[in-house]
Design a protein around this nucleic acid. Sequence first.
DNA 1: CGACGAAGTGACCGGGTGGTCATTCGTATG
DNA 2: CATACGAATGACCACCCGGTCACTTCGTCG
Lengths: 247, 247
Amino acid sequence: MYPPSPREASANTMHSPRSTFDNLDPHKQGRVLEESLQEFAEHGYHQASVNRIVGRLGIAKGSLFQYFGSKEGLFRHLFARALDEIKAPLKAIRDADSGEPFPLRLRRVFVEGAAFARSHPLIWRVYRRMVAQEDFPLRALLLSQVRDEALTYLRELVEGGQARGELRPDADPQAAAFLIEAALDRALTAQDAPLLDAGFGLSSGDEFQRQQRLAALADILSQGLLAPVDISSTGRHAPPHKGDANA
Amino acid sequence: MYPPSPREASANTMHSPRSTFDNLDPHKQGRVLEESLQEFAEHGYHQASVNRIVGRLGIAKGSLFQYFGSKEGLFRHLFARALDEIKAPLKAIRDADSGEPFPLRLRRVFVEGAAFARSHPLIWRVYRRMVAQEDFPLRALLLSQVRDEALTYLRELVEGGQARGELRPDADPQAAAFLIEAALDRALTAQDAPLLDAGFGLSSGDEFQRQQRLAALADILSQGLLAPVDISSTGRHAPPHKGDANA
DNA sequence: CGACGAAGTGACCGGGTGGTCATTCGTATG
DNA sequence: CATACGAATGACCACCCGGTCACTTCGTCG
């Protein structure tokens, strides 16, 4: 269903000037983008080589520059595409389980996050590199676009839990969000980086084992944030008794 | 002519073949190492430029290669030096507070860790780059040397807490160590990387505020691991007993 | 057919890279 | 002084980089 008049298919926030690339056979477009993403994922931005990309694609170097203007332009294009792919599942998680108890929601965040990283390994690798490598071309601008979204969600998750009396009211939501994000980020990274796995086993084992381990991480964090039962400083309402919550 | 008595000052685990560098005026040695470390910290391994290093030092390029043989050799040398500087304070923490209660020890880990990262910013930056960047020359070998040490300590910290009844006996020490390490790593990184600060404020504020925030992170983690009060809605097995632990 | 424009090409450019080595320098010794 | 020898040098090398552009190819019109 391609609408005839507006050829802008995607609702990209980054509008690149119309170029030859848009008129290409979509199949070829796909190949170009995929191979380029692969290169950036494997080598990072600076070590990625345009020569290598065109070599694998079997096209002339001039073509790539005609499409995207520069190496940075190519990277921008890839990022915009990836951003679209990231936003959808993130919104899906956000909306799906707003009624569930906090620990369950947190588990879901970990499991769904891990699933995304596993199903988009290249995007995830490039993202990691951008986070860690300070000299990516548009690092601050691009990263804030995706990180703000995730962090806002996590903060709201915590604040919602506090509002419902599930969580200790005296815990700093910023601190909690920070901690969750740190744990989540490392967990997803560890999935395909045994060196960072810390002997925990996120990079090995079958799907079920991994999910259990992710849940275990989420549970420790939940436990650290749950409303206290016998400790002194509550003062407010007693925590709602939570017999079974999840069926 | 060889020096009459071997002046091997450092007990380096990596023994590089004797070279011109060892005979140099120690002051000059220091300048060379410092400036090189700076370059690697600023630009990472591949983007670091030997030309730039010798430029800043005001020495000929040939000299650097006479000293270290190659860019990689220079990096190895720097790493060996840094490793010595890391191990000492790490052992100091390990031995210092073995009698304190768990939450206090964990706080100390965060605060001391942050202090180290602040007092050795260049080493810390290079370390971060090595962790995140997969194509460092001896990444796996070099990293395992320092990470094993830290992780073993954290795991022992948790197991010790469990043995003394402070911590939930059913928490997986591996999971706990993983979580602590993830939080710690991100906290130290956030100190000088506002982009990763997640609005928490570790990269701003005075020394006292930062320490309080670090302690807050440690406390949430401690709370998540402390002996049970009431495990919640999650479907996991209930903790075996809950009677005594904390009064 | 010829004309035209879009798509595709690859030799070529300036510049930076890690690394080499024949040479010079500095100095302590006989 | 002459000799010896390690330290210091920087011109030079092959290589790769991102980027350019005059040119060819191709498809579609009139």
